[in-house]
Amino acid sequence: MIRKASIMHVFPDYYEEYKRRHDKLWPEMAEVLKRHGAHNYSIFLDEETGSLFAFLEIEDEEKWEQIAQTDICQKWWAYMEPLMETNPDNSPVSRNLKEVFYLE
C-alpha cells in the first residue's frame, strides 16, 4: 500500500456543510474511490484555520490518478466547489505532503 497525505482548505462558514456532505457520501462516489484503490481514507479539519488534512492508502499511483477522469468524481468536485478552495476544473486546491516518519 502507498500512504498519501494532503492539505486542502474549506471556507469557515461551511465546516458543518462539508462534514454533512461527507457523512452522506454518494454510494457511487464511494464505489469509484474503492474501484480506484482507495483504502482507509480520512479527512480531518483544523477549525482554527479551515485546513483539511486528508490521508488515504492506495494500491497504485496510476490507478488512483485516473479517478479524476471519472464523471462521478467531476460531479463531486462541482458539488463541493462552493465550500472550498478549488482549481478552475473544480478539483480541490491540494498540496501533497511528504512523509517524514512512519511507525508501523
Rank of each mutant, 00 (worst) to 15 (best):
E31I: 01
A78K: 14
H36S: 05
R20E: 06
A78H: 12
K4Q: 09
E61G: 07
A68C: 08
Y102A: 15
A68G: 07
R35F: 06
S6R: 10
S51C: 15
I43M: 14
E61V: 08
H9G: 05
E28G: 07
A38N: 06
K98C: 12
D60A: 06
A5Q: 04
R3Y: 04
H22R: 02
L52A: 04
M29L: 08
R20T: 08
R20W: 04
E81A: 15
E31A: 07
H9W: 09
P82V: 06
V93A: 14
V100D: 07
K4Y: 06
G50Y: 03
A54H: 10
N87Q: 15
H9L: 10
A30L: 07
E31M: 05
A5D: 00
K34V: 01
D71H: 13
E99S: 15
H36D: 02
E59Q: 11
Y102V: 13
Y102W: 10
C73E: 09
D89I: 09
V10S: 00
S6H: 11
W64I: 03
D13W: 02
W64P: 00
I72G: 01
L97K: 11
K75D: 05
R3D: 04
W26Q: 02
E85G: 09
G50M: 04
W26V: 00
S91G: 10
L33A: 01
L56G: 05
Y41M: 06
I67E: 01
E47S: 15
E104Y: 08
E59P: 02
Y41A: 05
F44W: 15
I72T: 07
A68N: 08
Q74N: 12
V100W: 12
P12V: 00
R21V: 00
E31H: 07
V32E: 04
E16P: 00
G50R: 02
H9T: 12
R21L: 03
Y18H: 01
E28W: 02
E81S: 14
K34A: 04
T49M: 12
R20H: 09
H22Y: 03
Q66G: 12
E104N: 14
E47T: 13
M80D: 00
W77C: 10
E104F: 07
L33S: 00
E61H: 09
S94E: 12
N40G: 13
E17P: 00
T49D: 14
